[in-house]
Design a protein around this nucleic acid. Structure first.
Lengths: 225, 225
DNA sequence: AGGCTCAGGTTGACATCGTTAACCTAACGG
DNA sequence: CCGTTAGGTTAACGATGTCAACCTGAGCCT
């Protein structure tokens, strides 16, 4: 226990809630692991007895979710500042921004999007991520570069960039290439190109030779233009 | 404790190891959650005292990893049976098979690929997944439909399908579309199309109008052919 | 001033967990 | 038949999430 906290005045009960959240957040970022967030450690850092935590959070998971959600304001800002300009390029910027956000808040991202969420109700973190993706995808659909249901398209793009960052977070000892940024770029662009292309290729998947031939031609034209 | 196990004969010490693994596996699949796998529960189901588990596994995580790895034989078989024929179409089949594998072994997949792996050494599960992807991608590169470093391409394709299934596993209460299979198909094809396209489009990302025009033309030709 | 109330905590305990140290015992070689 | 040792067991420790019961002091009322 760092310092025995002075008792709050009447009506200031919510003060403790904020102090607990701050203590928990510092614990998370300092240790880099959610395992370090024990109720006792948080209470001690807040200068308060252990059961006091339960005055403001129904259980440990509620505390963990609340503290991890604090990072999600950053994500909204990131999407907002990257959504302008050409829709397809904005999509790329937002995807990269999403990845940067995840890697900048690894614990929070793991806790909220890589663990099994409770069965009841959509977790707000997931809803926010998906919502932001839908917004930027919708502009691509309106501009004509993407076609189809924006929500469906957003799901694929979201899962694509999520896959990249979640593997990076979960497998730190994997022999990743030097330029992680380049890998993320690749994941984002591949998802964008693929989505744009899929909505225009009807029928069965073309075979290798046919696809190679058509894409060679496309590459020449886009390279020249 | 179900039934007090009869002591193994001399030299049959490894018998217990197998029985512990079987008990742990049944616990995992019955409960569907790795939290149910406590050392005590496993020992009880194996008909043995709790510390006996430590005769064969250094700690709980070692046991958990060992039991989850048992599913990975299935994955090797799946890639093997889907790798034949046209390379690009085989890539699609393997991607779908990978997703089916993950959804068929949700606990094992979560434990081995969605939790933070230890810092020392590449986990065998991740190495196997990546290795299989590289194999099938290499054939695509040899046939010319994909271009570039097979390992790099495999990383993107792996992360793409991993993203889809890991979101499905982690967010069961998300309003997923009815046809999960269709969503997986989409993720796989988008990754394949995008990868094939990216290696042919040099220079900066085209803007929305340019991309839309070229892809419209491509769609018409592939649709007719 | 002085007492009452109840928001805002604390003390102490319980069950369960992973893990270890110390001990036991039955199967085999001689 | 006896000693060794592989193959276990018993008992315990410390940490954890959580709860029931208790305390206490700030603010209102008379």
């Amino acid at each position: 226990m760092a310092q025995r906290r002075v008792r709050a005045r009447r009506g200031d009960g919510l003060l403790l809630r904020e102090e607990i959240l701050a203590a928990a957040e510092s614990l998370l970022t300092e240790t880099g692991s959610e395992d370090a967030l024990t109720v006792r450690a948080v209470a001690a850092r807040a200068g308060v007895s252990t059961p006091s935590v339960y005055l403001h959070f129904s259980d440990k998971d509620a505390l963990l979710e609340a503290v991890c959600l604090r990072a999600w304001d950053d994500l909204a800002r990131l999407f907002q500042t990257n959504a302008h300009g050409d829709p397809f390029r904005a999509l790329g910027r937002c995807g990269r921004a999403y990845a940067r956000f995840a890697l900048a808040h690894p614990v929070q991202y793991r806790v909220l999007l890589m663990r099994t969420a409770p069965r009841d109700g959509v977790p707000p973190a997931a809803a926010a991520c998906f919502g932001h993706m839908v917004d930027v995808v919708r502009r691509c659909v309106e501009s004509g570069v993407l076609r189809g249901d924006p929500e469906r398209l957003a799901l694929t793009l979201w899962s694509s960039v999520h896959g990249c960052v979640s593997l990076l977070l979960a497998q730190p000892s994997f022999p990743w290439p030097e330029d992680v940024d380049g890998l993320i770029d690749q994941a984002v662009i591949v998802a964008g190109f693929g989505s744009a292309m899929l909505s225009r290729v009807r029928g069965p998947v073309p075979d290798s030779a046919e696809l190679a031939g058509e894409l060679d031609a496309l590459g020449r034209r886009l390279g020249e233009g």
